[in-house]
């Protein structure tokens, strides 16, 4: 499950595969740290549980509108954002927007796309983003809720879709967002198929949203999944990763808990045509088949976007 700005609804979905390391090698050294983590985790988890339920009414269109200027400045001048194909998003019905995710815990793709959505359709249109529990429990959680961010769970996503909203989900979540920078051109949902089941249950189209550039805002080196498991972070906080990167201003950045100063990498986002699942795959679609179709489409688009880039960061 993700630790990034936005997250996954793929409960029970396949886990990221191990790359062959032995977690027991570091488990002993981490045992004392893990017991300490366990002691402090209780109150934190209680706080998280309190904030899990989706209150869609926390979304505040006036607040979003008043904050668009600085988001626009950041998106236009720092990230030189370019969003293509917004007109493909159905205007008058709920829709599940499925994106690939990049940029560590500072996710410029979300910022650029949220701005594009709010200016294109207006802040009046309901738009919710799914985020990891830890993000919503952090000090910025209350601010994100006013943007329409809710905790990533199938229940919350269904509730938002039933309310007629456009819902943005990043199935790859914390796994994908911390992938090494040299895998920038790879869509990696880690087998999480929850988004397909959600779209089928809610009978809404999937609109793939493919972005590139976020993984060039720092030098991401490793997911750190073995370290996370050894420290018990996966059990305590649903954190599958403890990423390691080279990023400003920390230089060596472990965890990315405080975020980082992103390099001004050009962010390009391509919105694809909506996929009507029952229309395309029949009345009882196979989840695996839909998953493969969506990820293949997104990967092909990401390949095209990668081919357009001449230089890292510059774009």
């Amino acid at each position: 499950m993700p630790a990034s700005r936005t997250g996954t609804v793929a409960e029970g979905a396949g886990e990221p595969s191990s790359n062959g390391g032995d977690p027991s090698r570091v488990a002993g050294a981490a045992r004392r740290g893990r017991s300490l983590l366990g002691a402090v985790a209780g109150p934190v988890l209680e706080r998280i549980q309190d904030r899990l339920a989706a209150d869609l009414d926390d979304r505040d269109p006036d607040y979003i509108r008043e904050n668009l200027p600085w988001v626009w400045l950041l998106s236009s001048l720092w990230f030189r954002g370019e969003v293509r194909g917004m007109g493909r998003i159905p205007e008058d019905r709920p829709v599940l927007l499925v994106g690939n995710h990049s940029g560590g815990n500072i996710t410029p793709d979300t910022l650029v796309f949220t701005l594009a959505f709010c200016t294109y359709f207006g802040v009046e249109r309901r738009f919710h983003q799914l985020a990891h529990n830890l993000v919503l429990s952090s000090p910025i959680g209350p601010l994100l809720r006013r943007y329409g961010t809710v905790a990533a769970s199938p229940q919350n996503a269904r509730k938002a879709l039933e309310a007629g909203a456009a819902v943005l989900v990043y199935p790859g979540g914390d796994w994908e967002v911390h992938r090494p920078s040299w895998q920038s051109g790879k869509v990696d949902f880690a087998g999480r198929r929850g988004f397909v089941r959600l779209a089928l249950e809610a009978d809404v189209p999937i609109v793939p949203v493919v972005s590139i550039g976020g993984q060039e805002t720092a030098l991401f080196l490793s997911h750190g999944e073995h370290l996370s498991r050894a420290l018990g972070l996966d059990r305590l906080f649903r954190l599958k990763v403890l990423p390691i990167s080279v990023a400003l201003p920390w230089i060596v950045n472990v965890g990315d808990f405080l975020g980082h100063l992103p390099l001004p990498s050009k962010i390009t986002i391509q919105v694809l045509e909506p996929i009507e699942l029952t229309e395309r795959f029949g009345r009882d679609p196979d989840v695996d088949e839909v998953y493969e179709h969506v990820t293949e489409l997104m990967q092909a688009t990401l390949d095209e976007l990668a081919a357009e880039r001449r230089l890292p960061v510059i774009g």
Partner: peptide, 13 residues
Amino acid sequence: VLLHIGSADVGGL
């Protein structure tokens, strides 16, 4: 109406 300004299409009704 939408006008492309910077990184976004900005406008409204």
